[in-house]
Each structure stands twice: as structure tokens, then as C-alpha cells.
Design a protein around this nucleic acid. Structure first.
Length: 255
DNA sequence: ATGGTAGAGGATCTA
């Protein structure tokens, strides 16, 4: 079983790349972030034609998340319960006994900004919800754009980024509290290439210079992490024409 | 050097 996540930065622009990626990689689940598509414009039929179901929640211009899957999901939820949020950043669905939660964590802008405060309120709300979800669903995968580089080795220049948004201690502590729930960062279960990242700024030729950050993650509950076989970043999409600024991450889990 | 690129939407906002 293959589970993947990809911040596509506009599904409209990236649709052909997404469909190509599905056809080549045949994931069971692909979580998308930053679809930037209202529900009525979601390319449901085009994705269906490649053999994938979709559940999605979107809004105009910003945010938007979706789960594409080979089988139909149930118990779909499109928000963090008991947390008021007009921004569409969460979708969860169940596939057999597998609970998949797709998230697009607020970016935070800068540590002295209002958006950073929103990010630091959003993450505990997610945490509280996940604590309950893990009781209900022992096989739980949390995938998405976390907008947090958990460690200095996840940052191309940790000195210049020290304390900045994506790397600040409060954000890293919030990430740590997700792990404290019993989740595992699947990427770090395996040997990985040095300087592995999932996002590179469009500017300053950041990808060519590998000035990136590892901010897209797949966290697995204990029942899944113990049967997880691999976790990889697929940098090939970032080399395409008109790429997303994020690369897909995927895990293989034994059936 | 506080820049720069991309997407949405149609001027800026977000990342």
C-alpha cells in the first residue's frame, strides 16, 4: 500500500502533472494541499478517469485540500471539530481500517505576525482532535504540508533560519507534541540522502542550488509505523516545466 | 543587498 502527499500549489495548473503522477506511481492514497479550487470547480471527472475517487474541501484563491484514492472513503470530515476556522485546511477519510488525515498547516508568515499566532493556535487544536482520532483509529496516517522543518538537518541554512518561521522553537515544540501522541516521522525511520528537502522557493534558483526545507511530512501511528517499509521524496516533479514548489512524499506500507 | 517568483484574480495577498 502506497500513501502520498503533495502540495500542488493550484490543482488547476498542476492537474496534468497530478494525473501523470497517479498513472506512474499508482498510490492507493494521494493527499493534496493548496488546491486553490472551489468545490464546484474540482476536477472530479478528470481524476475519476484515471481511476481515482476524490473527497475535497476548497475555497477561492487560497488553501484547499483533497484526498484522492483508489477506493471510496467513508466518515469524511472537512474541519477540525470544535475549532472555528474559515480556511479550508483539513480533510479526513477512512479506507477500510485506515484513517487518513490530510492537513495544510498555516504558513505563519513571520514569528512577529498575526498569522504566526493563528498557526500556534491551529496546531494545538489539531493535536486535541488527533488524540481522540488515534483512540478510534489505531491505523492512522497524518499527511500534508506541516510548514515546519522539525530539525536543523531539514533546513538548507539552519544558521540563517534559526528562530524564523518554519523553524522556530514553538513550531518545533508543536511538531514534537504530535510525535508525543504516538506518531512517527516516517521519513526518519530510514536512511536518507543528505540535504533531503520537500520545498524549494521559486525565487533565487533555490531548487537548482538545493536551498530547500523538509516541511511536508507523513506521520504514522504505531500500528502503521511498525509495518512501514520506506519513505521517499520524489524530486522529479520539481524538475518539470511549471512545477509546484513542493515535491511529493510517499510511504510504502506492507499490506 | 530585505531583493526574487508563482498563483489567483484582476489590486494586492499569500506563500
Amino acid at each position: 500500500m502506497k500513501l502520498a502527499t503533495w502540495n500542488v500549489n493550484s490543482l488547476k495548473v498542476r492537474l496534468s502533472q497530478v494525473i501523470d503522477w497517479l498513472n506512474v506511481n499508482q498510490p492507493d492514497i494521494l493527499c493534496l494541499q493548496e488546491t486553490k479550487s472551489q468545490n464546484e470547480n474540482f476536477p472530479y471527472n478528470e481524476i475519476m478517469a484515471s481511476g481515482y475517487q476524490s473527497v475535497f474541501t476548497g475555497q477561492k484563491t487560497y488553501n484547499g485540500v483533497a484526498i484522492l484514492s483508489k477506493t471510496i472513503g467513508t466518515e469524511t470530515v472537512t474541519k477540525i471539530p470544535n475549532f472555528d476556522d474559515v480556511q479550508k485546511r483539513v480533510i479526513a477519510s477512512t479506507f477500510g481500517d485506515l484513517r487518513v488525515i490530510c492537513i495544510y498547516v498555516p504558513n505563519g508568515d513571520a514569528v512577529d505576525s498575526e498569522k504566526y499566532g493563528y498557526k500556534l493556535r491551529w496546531l494545538p487544536a489539531l493535536n486535541d482532535w488527533l488524540r481522540n482520532e488515534l483512540v478510534t483509529y489505531p491505523k492512522l496516517a497524518l499527511l500534508g504540508d506541516f510548514n515546519i522543518a522539525p530539525d536543523d538537518r531539514d533546513v538548507y541554512d539552519p544558521e540563517s533560519w534559526e528562530g524564523k518561521v518554519l523553524c522556530s522553537q514553538p513550531e518545533r515544540d508543536a511538531f514534537g507534541r504530535l510525535l508525543d501522541l504516538g506518531l512517527t516521522d516516517s521519513f526518519r525511520m530510514f536512511d536518507q540522502p543528505e540535504k533531503s528537502y520537500t520545498w524549494w522557493d521559486y525565487r533565487m534558483m533555490a531548487f537548482r542550488r538545493n536551498r530547500g526545507m523538509r516541511i511536508d511530512h507523513i506521520l504514522l501511528s504505531n500500528e502503521l509505523s511498525k509495518i512501514c517499509l520506506s519513505c521517499q521524496v520524489d524530486k522529479t516533479t520539481r524538475k518539470l516545466e511549471r512545477p509546484s514548489d513542493h515535491a511529493p512524499v510517499f510511504v510504502e506500507i506492507s499490506d
